Simulated assay, not measured.
Amino acid sequence: MSDNDAILSLDDVTISFGSGLVLKGIDLTVNRGEIIGYIGPNGAGKSTTLKIILGLINEYQGTVNVFGEDISSGNDSYKHKIGYVPENAELYDNLTANEYLTFSGELYGMESTKAASKAERLMREFGLEDVLHSKISSFSKGMRQKVLLISSLLHDPELLFLDEPLSGLDANSVIIIKEMLEALAAKGKTIFYSSHIMEVVEKISNRIVLLADGRIIADGSFEELRKQSKEGSLEQIFNQLTGFDSHQETAKTLVQIISEEA
């Protein structure tokens, strides 16, 4: 793809909290229609990266361009073309799903009746038509996650950020989401996908970016990463590149401790 296809770019992005650097010079360009698997150990800086791009954290150094515009300019109109599912989201439990989704659509500039109609149709496809007018406080984890996904997609975003989006979903729903994301990418949507579930990242991403200790240490397709590391699965590649090679020994030690007589 050419530079004109770039939807998102980070140039030497650095941020520190307290005395510690969290991101240490991130350089990344994401092109239209890509599904980026953004992975890394806990504390590597994945969620921080997303929050910077989304304008939720401003105290960074470097340059972040979204849709060709530097987000530090103060113009946040780019957010209307973005969808976001955070890892830990607080929903308005006292609202019904219909009320919450209509409200979300309005925040993105949708007309209320159109937002409500589209939300109803999406809820039906996710098997939630019977609880459209029920309060979210009565929803299971999986049902709440589906509402979050619908909320992120309702306004037909050009750029979608998903942070552990499959949390709590059943196997059938996971398959549907994977197929849907591939179809959205085929339509030119760009998807930034962060998860610890390596099997899903491996299958769904056409490009994988591995972050460790605040730096990008690998960037390429799954096949390219596999050739570089000589490993079979993304989980094995992940363990090799991040230097995590003690998992089997740790597991054995844990079992030994658990098996000790009380």
Rank of each mutant, 00 (worst) to 15 (best):
L128G: 11
E129F: 14
I136N: 01
I136T: 05
S137L: 09
S138I: 10
S138W: 03
K141P: 11
K141M: 12
G142D: 15
M143L: 12
R144G: 11
K146M: 01
L148E: 13
L148Y: 04
H155Q: 10
H155A: 08
L159N: 14
P165G: 09
L166D: 10
S167I: 04
L169M: 14
L169D: 12
D170S: 08
N172L: 06
V174M: 15
I175A: 15
I176P: 02
M180H: 08
E182H: 13
E182I: 03
A183W: 00
L184I: 04
A185H: 07
A186E: 15
K187A: 13
K187Y: 01
G188M: 04
T190C: 02
I191Y: 04
F192E: 03
H196Y: 09
M198G: 12
E199P: 04
V200P: 03
V200W: 02
V201N: 09
I204C: 13
I208R: 05
L210R: 07
L211S: 05
R215S: 10
A218W: 05
A218K: 05
D219V: 07
G220P: 05
G220H: 03
S221F: 00
K227G: 03
E231P: 06
S233C: 11
S233I: 02
L234W: 01
E235A: 14
I237V: 12
I237K: 11
I237R: 10
L241P: 15
T242H: 08
D245R: 02
D245Q: 09
